[in-house]
Amino acid sequence: MSDGGLSIRAQVLLWTAQRASAVVLAVCVIIHLVTIIYAVRNGLSAAEILGRTRGSYAWAGFYAIFVAAVAVHAPIGLRSVLSESFNWRGASLDIAVMVMALALALWGFRAVYSVFI
């Protein structure tokens, strides 16, 4: 069933990684939403956000995990969507979603760094 792209084992490991990252995302999204609701109780300002995140290793660590989970989860899902919607399969698809994963990770970690520094 390999179509010139990934081996069967790699395909299954991608599936496993997507499920595992979904578990991480579920926790991260809940913490993120609760934080938003708590943070905006007196209005929302950039200064308040930066006051919370600047120099905080805890928030930087949390959002780094969040970004890593997104960078794993979203491209694997997109791989299925592209494959099923546009009949796009094989190595070119795998490369395209890998580029997307790297872009999500790059932009995400950059944002985390920006509000930490």
């Binding site: 069933m1 390999s2 081996s7 069967i8 084992r9 299954v12 490991l13 599936w15 496993t16 499920r19």
Partner: peptide, 17 residues
């Protein structure tokens, strides 16, 4: 099947058909 195959893949026991 998903669970069994994922477990086998993690153990390195899942070969191509």
């Amino acid at each position: 099947l998903k669970r069994a195959a994922a477990l086998a893949a993690l153990k390195g026991e899942l070969g191509d058909a």
